[in-house]
Structure formats: structure tokens, C-alpha cells
């Protein structure tokens, strides 16, 4: 009878020196911040499954009881947001692909090829400033450009005659191009950081073998870039999907057939009686779904992209 007690006491005694107060404090702090970061998202998640009555009657972070559970909010949110969701996909995927490609070629031309260090540095600085400028500084010209100077609705008039195409989609195309333009500098910087770590010898050796600049890029650099392409793609996809300011100013109305998902979400579930929070939360989570899935799968690459952009 006494033997197991003894072993347990021994175990506790052995553990004590390790379980010092610092360790306990550390664990508590980490748990506290875990709750802090997850609370708004968790609260949103459980609220999205509550009936209108349960939303006001229950504590926000407690999951709905059997009487207060409903999928109706999700149904309505998906109904409202599906067009915006598809528009966002149509816009985000091509603009991400093009931006990643152009970012990679720009970084190649500025790091692995030497055509004058001073000139290359000047070009680099111009790219870097492009990362940091507030987009407000180009919004007025941008909307003037797409509306008065180069209106795609008129420029591409025959296209909108096609089935499934609406003139409003011209705005979506403007938005896609805009994202490419302002996404290039950051993608360039991410690739540049990676190309600087590649050894010069590789390129030098290929040059001695008579390979051209283009061949070196296609045969050596592009295949070596694969891990970085992943990082940049994830980062850029998330950035463009989440973007709102360009959508708002170039598309304008959340009721436009070309509205992106973030634009539709900003006005969801508001009427004279106030905000339907269950619907709002379901909509917010639905709109965030692609980025959440990507984050769940590639959190490490996402963190790498963030850490590398300084």
C-alpha cells in the first residue's frame, strides 16, 4: 500500500527543482496571451452559429446550446458573399501569379547580374520607396486614370458582349492590374533577399559554359527559386485577398457585380434595426476562409515572408 505513495512522493520531489516559479509564470503568461490572441476569433466563430436570441442571451465566447444553434447565418452569409468570393478569386490568383513572376525577374536583374553597381543601387532604392509609400498618395490619379484616361469599359468594349461578361467586370480587371503594379516592389525585395544567399559561383560557372542571361534564369535560378516562390505566393495572395482600399476606390459600391469579398463584407448585415452580429461573424469568417486555410497549411512560410520583408 505504501509503495505507490512513496514512488509518487519521490516523483514529486524529483520534479520540484524543475518546476521553479519562473517556469510556472512563463506558462501562465503564454497561456494568457494565447487566450488574448484567440479570443476575438473564437468569439466570432461561436457567435456565427448562434440564433439571434442566443446571441444576446448567452456569454459571447460560450458555444451555443442545443436550442440556440443554427446554420442559418452561415447560409445567408455564403449567399450574400459568394459572388464577391468568386470575384476575389478571379482577381487575386492572376494578379498574384504575375506579381510573383515579375518580382522574381526584377530581383534577378538586380542581384545576380552585374551591370553597374551604382545604377543597380539607384533602381533598388526606387523599388524600396515603392514598398513604403501610403497608397493614399496615388489614389486620386489612379481613379482618374481608370475612369477618365484609360477606361477599360470602352477600351475593351467588344469583350463585354461575351456571355458571362459584364461591363462592371472591367473594374475588376483594373483592380487586378493595379494590384500587380503595387505588389511588384515587395515581391522583388523578398526574392532579392533569397537571391543574395545563392552563391555567385553558380552563375559564374554557367556563364563560362556560355549560358546566356536568359538561359541562366530559366535553367538555374527559376528551379532554385521554388521554395521562395512558395513564400512569396502565400504572402502576396494573402495581401491581395485581404486588401480593401483599392477595391473600395476602384469598384466603389458593395452592390456592384464586380465587388470583391472584402468590399461586400464591409456592408453586410446592417439595417435600420442595427447589426446582425451572427451574420456579420459568419460573413467575416467565410471571407477569411481562403487565407485561414493557407495560413493553417503554410504558417511557417507566412512567418518567413513577414520576417524577411524588413
Amino acid at each position: 500500500m505504501s509503495k505507490p505513495t512513496q514512488t509518487r512522493a519521490e516523483n514529486v520531489a524529483r520534479m520540484l527543482p524543475e518546476l521553479n516559479y519562473w517556469r510556472i509564470a512563463l506558462a501562465l503568461v503564454i497561456t494568457f496571451f494565447f487566450a488574448f490572441f484567440i479570443a476575438p476569433i473564437w468569439t466570432g466563430l461561436v457567435t456565427s452559429f448562434k440564433t439571434g436570441a442566443a446571441v444576446t442571451a448567452t456569454t459571447p465566447f460560450v458555444p451555443p446550446g442545443p436550442g440556440g444553434f443554427t446554420l442559418e447565418k452561415w447560409g445567408r452569409a455564403i449567399d450574400h458573399l459568394s459572388t464577391g468570393f468568386i470575384n476575389s478569386l478571379i482577381m487575386t490568383v492572376p494578379s498574384t501569379v504575375v506579381t510573383v513572376f515579375l518580382g522574381s525577374t526584377a530581383a534577378y536583374g538586380l542581384t545576380l547580374v552585374d551591370w553597374g553597381k551604382r545604377a543597380q543601387f539607384a533602381v533598388l532604392v526606387l523599388f524600396l520607396v515603392g514598398i513604403f509609400i501610403p497608397y493614399q498618395a496615388v489614389l486620386v490619379p489612379l481613379s482618374d486614370f481608370w475612369i477618365n484616361i484609360f477606361p477599360l469599359v470602352e477600351v475593351l468594349a467588344p469583350v463585354w458582349e461575351l456571355e458571362f461578361m459584364e461591363p462592371a467586370h472591367a473594374r475588376l480587371l483594373s483592380l487586378t492590374i493595379t494590384h500587380v503594379v503595387y505588389g511588384i516592389p515587395l515581391c522583388m525585395l523578398l526574392f532579392r533577399g533569397y537571391y543574395l544567399t545563392l552563391s555567385d559561383e553558380l552563375v559564374e560557372a554557367a556563364k563560362i559554359d556560355g549560358a546566356s542571361i536568359t538561359t541562366i534564369y530559366r535553367r538555374i535560378i527559376l528551379p532554385l527559386s521554388k521554395p521562395m516562390i512558395g513564400v512569396v505566393f502565400i504572402y502576396q495572395f494573402t495581401a491581395i485577398w485581404n486588401e480593401f482600399l483599392f477595391s473600395l476606390t476602384l469598384i466603389g459600391s458593395s452592390s456592384s457585380p464586380a465587388a470583391t469579398v472584402t468590399l461586400v463584407l464591409s456592408g453586410l448585415g446592417t439595417d435600420l434595426s442595427g447589426i446582425d452580429f451572427g451574420l456579420r461573424m459568419a460573413g467575416a469568417l467565410f471571407a477569411a476562409l481562403p487565407t485561414l486555410i493557407i495560413y493553417a497549411l503554410f504558417a511557417e512560410q507566412f512567418a518567413k515572408g513577414l520576417a524577411a520583408d524588413n
Binding site: 490572441f37 484567440i38 476575438p40 476569433i41 468569439t43 466570432g44 457567435t47 459571447p60 494573402t238 485577398w241 485581404n242 486588401e243 480593401f244 472584402t262 463584407l265 464591409s266 447589426i275 452580429f277 456579420r280 461573424m281 460573413g283 467575416a284 469568417l285 471571407a287 477569411a288 487565407t291 485561414l292 493557407i294 495560413y295 504558417a299 507566412f302 512567418a303 513577414l306
Partner: peptide, 17 residues
């Protein structure tokens, strides 16, 4: 780091609530 992966439009809804 999870909040950083979300759009401001999304997090604004959470905080409004």
C-alpha cells in the same frame, strides 16, 4: 501570428462585436 493573416475588414467585424 494568426491575426496578421486576416484582413482588417474581417478583424474590424470581430472587434465591433
Amino acid at each position: 501570428l494568426l491575426p496578421m493573416a486576416l484582413s482588417f475588414v474581417v478583424t474590424a467585424q470581430f472587434w465591433l462585436w
